[in-house]
Computed example of a mutant assay.
Amino acid sequence: MATTRYEIEKFDGKTDFELWKVKIKEVLGQQKALLAITNPAKYPETLTAAEKKTIEIVDQPTAYDLWKKLNEIYLNKDLYNKAFLRERFFTHKMDVAKSLTDNLNEFKRLSLKFRSIGDNIGEENEAFILLNSLLESFKDVKTAMKYSGEKSLQKQ
Rank of each mutant, 00 (worst) to 15 (best):
D102N: 11
S152Q: 10
I57Q: 05
K23D: 04
G122Y: 02
A97E: 13
K23S: 09
K146E: 10
A49H: 11
E51S: 08
A83M: 14
P40L: 01
H92F: 14
N125I: 02
Q30A: 07
A97N: 15
S116W: 01
K21Y: 14
A2Q: 13
I73Q: 12
F17T: 01
E106V: 01
K10W: 07
Q154E: 15
D65E: 11
K21G: 03
F114T: 00
L47Q: 10
T15I: 03
Y43K: 04
S99F: 13
I8E: 15
R115F: 07
K93W: 06
R115Q: 14
E51I: 02
S133I: 00
K139M: 03
A127V: 04
W67P: 03
R86E: 11
I55L: 13
N81G: 09
K93G: 08
K14M: 09
Y147K: 05
I117E: 00
K82L: 06
E124A: 08
L134E: 01
K32I: 01
N132F: 11
F17D: 01
K68L: 15
K82D: 12
K42S: 13
V96E: 15
D140K: 07
L100E: 12
I129P: 00
K98N: 15
E150Y: 14
I8S: 11
E123K: 09
I37L: 10
